[in-house]
Design a binder for these strands. Structure first.
Lengths: 356, 356
DNA sequence: CTGAAAGCGCTAACAC
DNA sequence: GTGTTAGCGCTTTCAG
């Protein structure tokens, strides 16, 4: 393995010159640079990452910290990762995905000066990792948001916009009995951001359309989805559409719908929010969904982090990204307004009270 | 940030002593060790990873290289990761997941002496990464197998056993028209290990039971699954069971079955191979599956790698792990043997030619 | 525009 | 059982 000395000797320059052509930290004449570059390629030189890191106090590694629970990475999260990795690679940084479950592990990783910065995924409202990294002096950017974002950089999904557009889509199809299946009650109670924010946004959106917001909570599993649909039908027997933000429950919901002889979308329209096209396509029919801005989230987070790390630019980047409506096969116009309504010609806006 | 010198000074010992209590590379008296440890905690000392790496020529980082395509990590792959991370952590190593898509990126990573070793996931029959890492002198272990495994360490799933048990399960339930839905024809032609090995194992298993092996290929998507089921029914209209090893196609298969009014498991039993419980539970009914030895694969791979890296033990670990049959709701006894058979009492073994 | 040399924080001989 | 010290390969002053 050739070292910088070897390159310097071969190019007949000093080591510092070699170093400077590598880092670009000071101007080098074209002639010298060419000599050095030639020597490098001739020797197949690659700088030693550890030595660089020690001398420069910069590892050129940024971490993507994701709590890996058993559920695995959905396509959405995977998109974060690929987007982030690409952005890091472009900047000459390595992105390492650290499946740190343990807070102590994280503390260790951070204090060992192994990371120039970190992107946190799956951020909780009260996330201990934030404090741990700040104490260790590791710059960070969140994908998601903590409760108090003062002085923190983050990139997150615009849940308000997402819910609003999803509801608008259903309303424009004539639906007026829309049930929202959220994450679990426990998640909401714990203040899990996406669950809380979508809940509020749903209430606002429905109210804005003069409709009554009905929300059901669901455990993150197929069984949870089945139970949620059962509860939804109990609470709103005349529902014509369900809005879901729970990739783990959605298949249970669809299964239970089928079990009850309700066809999608003929009898019930379904919209899945913050969903990747891949998952949407798994269902039959494919799901109309609000597609998450997957790789963009990851890319933007890393770019903001690197700006922070290198001291280039704002160290307080806060940004929301929209989800895009992609209409597939799980939504269609609401079944002809209730027989009674049709027969008496009332309620053409479809915004009447339930049970009419 | 406290350094080793600070610790040494506070404990009134030499730096080397501190270093040795850290590495355990030579015996230290209990008294000194205690002093040093006390000093360390008092200062909140954490060794600098870069300095250690430079001096010891060991980064204590092992890479888990996974080509991240858009599909994302299934629960199965995620289990590899968590198993591997846990094993690395226990040994005091960091596991970094490197989403290297580009071979040049990988070469760079390897030549920069950043990795003490690597575990390769999603191994292809002809995998360029193997050569790249070997040239760079990076020890490696595969999860999966290349075509020629001479001199290579690997851990893989025992596809023979998996197929054999899955078929045996169906046969024991009285099924005799079993269709296997494999990966795509292209994947098989390219020599994709799991596809080729399960194909051969399926033929062997069916033949062993005196049954005719019918295999259909499917693209890795819901649409591919739907098409495959259509093809399967065309080729074997009287099929009573389908065996699948394609997590992306399985939902398409199930959807198409429903579309055609075929109930699972009443009309058709379904077994999914190399599947995580999480995915199996997504379906309604939950899928009977051959559960993959997820985290064990990751753990064993890392343990083998670390033995290799530290020179402790065989650097040629080759091991196959079985999948476990977990019976859920998608299989049941075959529909009463064909009416004709029953009425004429023939073919009790169910091994007659198709179309009887 | 280029060189010389002093570290970065740690490990691992080599001494005792 | 412990101390001394020469590097590991690079970056970055400080000089020219």
């Amino acid at each position: 393995m050739a070292t910088m000395h070897d390159v310097a000797r071969l190019a007949r320059v000093s080591v510092s010159t070699v170093s400077y052509v590598l880092t670009g930290a000071r101007p080098i004449s074209q002639a010298t640079r060419d000599k050095v570059l030639a020597a490098m390629t001739e020797l197949g030189y690659q700088p030693n990452a550890m030595a660089r890191g020690l001398a420069s106090r910069r590892s050129r590694i940024v971490g993507l910290l994701m709590p890996m629970d058993e559920r695995g990475l959905g396509a959405t999260e995977t998109a974060f990762v690929t987007g982030a990795a690409a952005a890091a690679s472009v900047a000459g940084y390595h992105l390492v995905l650290s499946p740190v479950g343990d807070l102590d592990d994280l503390r260790r990783l951070a204090s060992q000066r192994m990371l120039d910065g970190a992107v946190l995924m799956e951020v909780q409202v009260e996330d201990e990792r934030v404090g741990a990294l700040q104490e260790a002096g590791v710059p960070l950017v969140l994908i998601g948001r903590t409760g108090d974002t003062t002085g923190l950089s983050y990139v997150d999904i615009d849940f308000d916009q997402t819910v609003r557009e999803a509801v608008a889509h259903l309303v424009s199809l004539g639906h007026d009995r829309i049930v929202y299946v959220n994450h679990s009650a426990a998640a909401i109670a714990a203040g899990y951001g996406p669950a809380v924010r979508t809940r509020d946004a749903f209430v606002a959106a429905m109210t804005g359309h003069g409709l009554e917001p009905v929300m059901i909570t669901a455990e993150d599993s197929a069984a949870g989805g089945r139970a949620a649909l059962t509860a939804a039908l109990a609470q709103a027997p005349d529902l014509t559409a369900v809005l879901v933000m729970n990739e783990n429950a959605i298949f249970g919901i669809l299964g239970e719908l089928t079990n009850r002889g309700l066809a999608v979308p003929r009898d019930v329209s379904v919209v899945s929010m913050v969903t990747s096209p891949q998952v949407a396509e798994l269902a039959t029919p494919a799901l109309t969904a609000m597609t998450s801005p997957g790789s963009a989230l990851g890319r933007i987070a890393v770019e903001a982090l690197l700006r922070h790390v290198t001291g280039t630019g704002d160290d307080n980047h806060q940004q929301l990204l929209p989800c895009a409506l992609e209409v597939r096969g799980s939504t269609c116009p609401a079944p002809a307004t209730l027989a009674v309504s049709v027969s008496d010609g009332s309620d053409p806006t479809g915004s009447g009270p339930p049970g009419t």
